[in-house]
């Protein structure tokens, strides 16, 4: 019997191979943190209107470029996922059949997200790049 004993150079363990539930949880966390940082900036720039309306206008005008436009697309994508998945999580906890249909509900969330994002992307990107 061939016996090969080798010490692998990769000391790290494997990533736990969870399924839809684990990865939707990861996505929910990431989008949550993204939304938090947006809100932080959003509160700051909105509060500028108390400093001076001109300063507020100047800051908002500086957002009107394609990079921020794509950033807004990403932000809406994060918020839409977080919102729909949040409803799914409430149903998992409070609807009697929630745990049984959690996977189907996730595909529902992804489907709704795709529909909303396609519609929003067409309108938003035509604003950003169409002038």
């Amino acid at each position: 019997m061939p016996k090969t004993l080798t010490k692998s150079l990769t000391p790290a363990g494997t990533l736990y191979r969870g399924r839809e539930g684990q990865w939707s949880w990861v996505a929910h966390r990431i989008t949550g943190v993204v939304i938090f940082f947006f809100l932080l900036v959003h509160v700051l720039d909105t509060s500028l209107v108390r400093v001076s309306p001109e300063a507020y206008d100047a800051v908002i005008a500086s957002y009107k470029n394609p990079i921020m436009g794509l950033g807004e697309l990403g932000l809406v994508a994060a918020i839409v996922f977080h919102a729909f998945n949040g409803i799914r999580l409430i149903l998992v906890d409070f609807w009697k059949k929630g745990p049984k249909y959690h996977r189907q509900m996730l595909w529902g969330v992804v489907g709704l997200w795709a529909v909303v994002m396609i519609a929003f992307s067409i309108r938003h990107l035509s604003h950003v790049f169409g002038g």
Partner: peptide, 26 residues
């Protein structure tokens, strides 16, 4: 519990673990 369902998929006895946790929450 954040309902990741890893427990329900790992259980070698097929216990619906997340469902049981939800029932306790209720």
């Amino acid at each position: 519990c954040r309902t990741t369902f890893n427990c329900s998929e790992a259980c070698p006895r097929g216990i619906q673990v997340t469902k049981a946790i939800s029932e306790v929450k209720q």
